[in-house]
Computed example of a mutant assay.
Amino acid sequence: GELGVQWREALLARGWVVATPDGRYEVSERGREALAELTPEDFKATGRMLYDCVDWSERRDHFAGPLAVAWLEAMVQRAWLQRAVESRELQLTPTLGDARRVRQWREARGGHWHLAIDTGMNRAGCPWDRVGDLADEVRASPPEGAFTHFHSADLDDGSVERQQHRFLESVRALPERPRFLHAENSPAIERQSPSPWDLARPGVALYGVGRGAGSVMAVEGVASLHARIVERRSVAPGESVSYGATWRATEDRVIATAAAGYADGIRRALGNRGSALVGGRRVPIVGAVTMDMTMLDVTGVDCDVGDVATFLGRQGGAELPIAEVAAAGELSPYEVLVGLRLRAPRRYVES
């Protein structure tokens, strides 16, 4: 990532690559002379040959596109660069679902790709009954794999069986069977075993979300959310807590304020519905969750300022699993997980 960013900056600083008014990049006359050794004589490409792509480690742009790939390969062949055997490099395989994109990928000299087949999700991919229309493009550039995506694998409504039948029918319409066929997401992996396919795509199960009651696969949560208690006060009967006065004490209660709110991933929907763990005991969230603070009813719980409240995960022998937290707020577990990216600092703990 760092080298890629530096390479882009050097090309622009030397004027070997210049930006055009319409936002594209072109190699200048000076650049063609300087980079002639790195550019194959038979290099041809259509569409965007060079464009910006964010490096997620550096958070800055490097160059991508067929021309950038050609330069990289030339450097590797000349041993100017060496590929690290053990590195964080990830090989990404695109999923394509229409003739135009398959053709563009082939013309850009792309590598492996997987055919996306829509069997009922109606979100992305080639409709299952139109796969035969791609026969010519598939013959010219055979996909390494083909896949579909189940829309309701967590429900016993027969949809998985219908989608799998459609998937099989669409695969039969291909000139030949791809090397890899895959369909199962997390709930589908739990639903059918052994799998009839070549690969599986576990998603939310990797973060500790299972089907719950009746599941045949035990999953362990990997994410937790904690905050320090910064205030502790007594609240008299009739007094309210938080914005909107949506909660009032019916008797003397002890309220603790934790230094985390919806800006940290504690969803507003958990106000008056969710829970936290304090001292290993479950306590209710009271009142509306605010941006930076959340109030808890800790009556009868031994706690003080500086103690930790856990809103997700384990504390001692107690646990608040993702699925339970989501259900309390009528949320998807995915919403709970993505909310953790908002602001709360991350700490990675070895198991």
Score class of each variant (00 low, 15 high):
Asp61Val: 03
Glu220Gln: 13
Val216Phe: 07
Ser224Met: 05
Leu81Pro: 08
Arg101Tyr: 06
Val254Pro: 00
Val349Ile: 14
Asp292Lys: 09
Asp52Ser: 08
Arg267Met: 12
Arg233Ser: 13
Arg139Gln: 10
Val5Asn: 11
Asp154Asn: 12
Pro345Asn: 02
Val216Trp: 11
Val298Gln: 04
Arg101Phe: 11
Arg347Lys: 15
Ser215Tyr: 03
Gly203Gln: 05
Phe147Val: 02
Asp22Ala: 08
Leu38Gly: 05
Glu190Phe: 07
Gln163Trp: 00
Ser141Leu: 12
Ile255Gly: 09
Val289Glu: 10
Ala323Asn: 07
Ala173Glu: 14
Ala10Ser: 14
Ala146His: 08
Glu86Met: 07
Thr93His: 11
Val298Lys: 07
Ser193Asp: 04
Gly300Ile: 08
Gly1Gln: 07
Leu81Lys: 02
Asp136Met: 04
Glu33Met: 06
Ala70Phe: 03
Gly300Ala: 09
Pro175Asn: 05
Ala260Arg: 04
Ala124Phe: 15
Arg166Asn: 12
Gln91Leu: 13
Ala153Leu: 05
Glu58Lys: 13
Asp252His: 10
Arg8Lys: 15
Glu41Asn: 02
Cys303Ala: 14
Ala45Asp: 03
Asn122Arg: 15
Asp42Met: 01
Asp302Thr: 10
Pro142Arg: 12
Ser242Val: 00
Gly339Glu: 11
Leu174Arg: 05
Gln77Ala: 15
Arg103Phe: 00
Thr20Ala: 04
Ala68Glu: 05
Glu37Pro: 04
Ser234Cys: 09
Cys53Asp: 07
Val301Asn: 03
Asp297Met: 08
Gly97Gln: 08
Ile117Ala: 10
Ala116Lys: 15
Val160Tyr: 07
Pro194Phe: 00
Met121Ile: 10
Leu340Thr: 11
Gly97Cys: 06
Leu115His: 09
Ala276Met: 01
Trp113Cys: 09
Gln91Gly: 09
Arg267Phe: 01
Asp304Cys: 10
Leu96Ile: 07
Gln164Val: 13
Ala328Gly: 03
Ala99Arg: 12
Ser170Glu: 07
Val5Cys: 11
Val298Ile: 12
Leu225His: 01
Gln77Thr: 12
Val17Arg: 05
Ala256His: 08
Gly238Leu: 03
Thr148Pro: 11
His112Lys: 08
Met293Pro: 00
Arg179Glu: 15
Glu190Asp: 15
Ala64Ser: 08
Ala344Val: 14
Leu81Ser: 03
Thr257Asn: 00
Thr20Lys: 04
Glu9Tyr: 01
Glu41Met: 03
Val17Ala: 05
Asn272Val: 01
Val18Leu: 15
Ser195Phe: 07
Ala13Ser: 14
Ala124Cys: 09
Phe311Lys: 03
Gln6Thr: 11
Met293Phe: 15
Tyr334Thr: 13
Glu319Phe: 00
Ala79Val: 08
Arg162Asn: 03
Glu58Leu: 10
Asp157Lys: 06
Leu206Trp: 00
Val138Trp: 02
Gly208Met: 08
Glu9Leu: 12
Trp197Ala: 06
Glu251Trp: 01
Phe43Cys: 10
Gly97Leu: 02
Asp61Cys: 13
Ala227Asp: 09
Ser351Tyr: 03
Ala327Arg: 14
Gly238Trp: 02
Arg32Thr: 01
Ser351Leu: 12
Ser141Gln: 10
Leu340Lys: 08
Thr294Ser: 13
Arg166Met: 09
Asp98Ser: 01
Pro202His: 01
Ala10His: 14
Asp307Tyr: 04
Asp61Glu: 15
Cys303Leu: 02
His114Trp: 13
